[in-house]
Simulated scan of single mutants.
Amino acid sequence: MTDATDEEIRELLDVETIAVIGCSATPGKAAHDVPAYLQRQGYDIIPVNPNRDEVLGRTAVDSLDDVSGHVDLVDVFRPSEEVSRIVDAALKRHQRHDDLDGIWLQRGIRDDAAAARARDAGLIVVQDRCLKVEHGRLG
């Protein structure tokens, strides 16, 4: 299975804390506007961006490994070529902390092999869909 069902997406929309890989400080970019929207909807957004100290009023961390608190969902705004490495980091976190429900790959981002590894580990994976759009549709 390569695509998440609406039921799985609804489950991910019910999370509290989202680590956003590639979160941008530049308004007008999807990697800024989508997390900002989610933050306004009440989600706790953890920006992951090694090039920024702060994004969306929150301290940015360099990598998923640097997130000290609970994470429910990893939302990815990085090229498809980077997904495998990001999924590997998410799976390591899932094994160590058992606090991850899913991985969301934003519009235009897809890696079927990495998604299969994450699903095999029990995570919900959404590929090539906008979290903001799906929140509006199903939330």
Rank of each mutant, 00 (worst) to 15 (best):
T59V: 13
L131E: 14
A19I: 01
D111N: 12
A118S: 04
D66K: 12
I18G: 03
G28R: 12
S84T: 15
R10N: 07
G22H: 06
L12R: 04
D98H: 15
E54D: 14
A113C: 04
Q39F: 00
A89G: 02
R96C: 02
G108L: 11
D111A: 04
L38K: 01
R93I: 01
L123D: 00
A19P: 02
D65L: 05
E11V: 01
V34A: 06
R93E: 06
H32A: 00
I103D: 09
I18W: 11
R10D: 08
F77I: 04
L131W: 05
A89T: 05
R137V: 13
Y43I: 01
D128T: 07
E54F: 09
S24H: 10
E134I: 07
I21K: 02
E54V: 10
R117E: 14
L105G: 00
R85M: 08
D14L: 07
I45A: 00
D33T: 04
E81V: 11
K29Y: 01
D99W: 14
V133D: 10
L123W: 05
V71F: 08
D111K: 05
I45V: 03
V55T: 06
L64G: 08
I103A: 05
V125A: 05
L64C: 07
H97G: 02
R40D: 15
N49T: 03
Q39S: 14
V48W: 06
K132Q: 15
R96Q: 12
R85V: 10
K92M: 12
R40M: 03
C130V: 03
G102E: 03
D99M: 01
R117M: 11
D65V: 01
A30W: 00
T26K: 15
V87S: 06
S24L: 10
F77S: 06
L56F: 08
V34W: 07
L138N: 13
E7P: 07
R119I: 11
A60P: 00
A31F: 05
A118Y: 01
H32G: 09
R119T: 12
R117L: 13
R117H: 12
R129D: 14
D111Y: 03
A31D: 09
V133T: 14
V67Q: 12
S84E: 15
V76A: 02
S24E: 06
I9H: 03
R129P: 10
I109F: 09
I46T: 07
I45N: 08
G122R: 10
V61E: 08
T5H: 12
V61H: 04
D75L: 08
S24G: 07
R58E: 15
T26S: 12
L38Y: 03
G22Y: 07
Q41M: 14
I124Y: 09
L13E: 10
D53I: 05
V34P: 07
A113K: 14
A121N: 02
L123S: 00
G136W: 01
A121R: 02
L105K: 09
I86K: 08
G22P: 11
